[in-house]
Write a protein that binds this DNA or RNA. Structure first.
Length: 270
DNA sequence: GCACATGTTGGCAT
DNA sequence: CATGCCAACATGTG
């Protein structure tokens, strides 16, 4: 589920449930996800007031009035279930609010994570230290990309997946953005012209905004016990569409880069 | 049984 | 030190 738009949609779905609420209980139901839960998680959250929620790249942020920020990552299979009727095998972390709502972090593959850090020290959180700019922020420009990609021989596909260059993109949206910008996924990052970088920045912005809007349009359906998100896979133009026709009439191809599938149109993307 | 999956990272070679 | 590339993590689905 989770690249930047999915995390953004998730956070927006949690806001009406958690923001301004006091934590009645916080429970871990196993010792770890990708790494152990903070040992003092329950104590530091119980009784705390949730003051706000946010996102950095693919990480969700939940601030409390005690100066702590809960940081969660959804890994490959993580999602929050809102007011589940009952808890299941993969509901690894559960919080209840004083007004009776309950949220459960469900993650079968357990590639996700939960941490609790001092809000003032967020910038020093290990995954954030070398992280690149937000793709929807002002710092992400063609000028920035030109410098970040200078002399890089690796493919633009792999470079865009590198969170140090730009933070929040994953395999789906990289494929989609490259298609939208008409750039071949195997082009060396350092050899892309400025005008094409402009197109790429715009494509990345457009695809993320469209995905968030699609998530947003089904947001009212988000807070369901089964934890399903209304999803927008119908809008993918190349991802998961090997052998189908691109709008140009050519057939979408699939290749493997760095062990991951790349979907692209050999005609539109040069 | 097999292939594949929206992510991250540690290790190794260059 | 920088860069590029792989395997590994754990579980589910088709």
């Amino acid at each position: 589920m989770p690249e930047l738009p999915e995390v953004e949609t998730t956070v927006r779905g949690l806001v009406p449930v958690l923001q301004g609420q006091r934590v009645k209980s916080a429970e871990t139901r196993r010792a770890d996800l990708r790494w152990p839960f903070p040992p003092d998680l329950r104590q530091r959250l119980t009784g705390a007031l949730i003051t706000g929620l946010g996102r950095r790249a693919k990480y969700g942020l939940i601030d409390t009035d005690r100066g702590d920020t809960l940081i969660f990552h959804l890994g490959m299979s993580g999602k929050w279930r809102v007011d589940p009727a009952e808890l299941g095998a993969h509901d690894h972390f559960v919080m209840e609010t004083e007004d009776g709502r309950r949220v459960a972090l469900n993650d079968p593959r357990r590639f996700g994570s939960v941490d609790l850090v001092r809000t003032e020290a967020l910038a020093a959180y290990k995954p954030f230290i070398a992280m690149g700019p937000e793709p929807l922020g002002n710092a992400f420009t063609a000028d920035y990309l030109k410098i970040a990609l200078r002399d890089r021989s690796a493919s633009i596909k792999l470079l865009l997946l590198d969170q140090r260059i730009v933070a929040g993109l994953g395999n789906i949206y990289v494929c989609e953005a490259l298609h939208m910008a008409g750039i071949s996924p195997r082009t060396a990052g350092g050899r892309i012209s400025k005008p094409r970088l402009e197109a790429l920045v715009q494509a990345i912005r457009n695809v993320l905004v469209a995905a968030i809007e699609a998530g947003g349009s089904s947001l009212r359906d988000y807070a369901r016990p089964d934890g399903e998100l209304g999803y927008f896979s119908k809008e993918w133009r190349v991802y998961g569409r090997e052998g189908e026709e691109c709008h140009c009439g050519a057939l979408v191809r699939r290749r493997v880069d760095g062990g991951r599938s790349t979907f692209y149109c050999p005609t539109c993307q040069r």
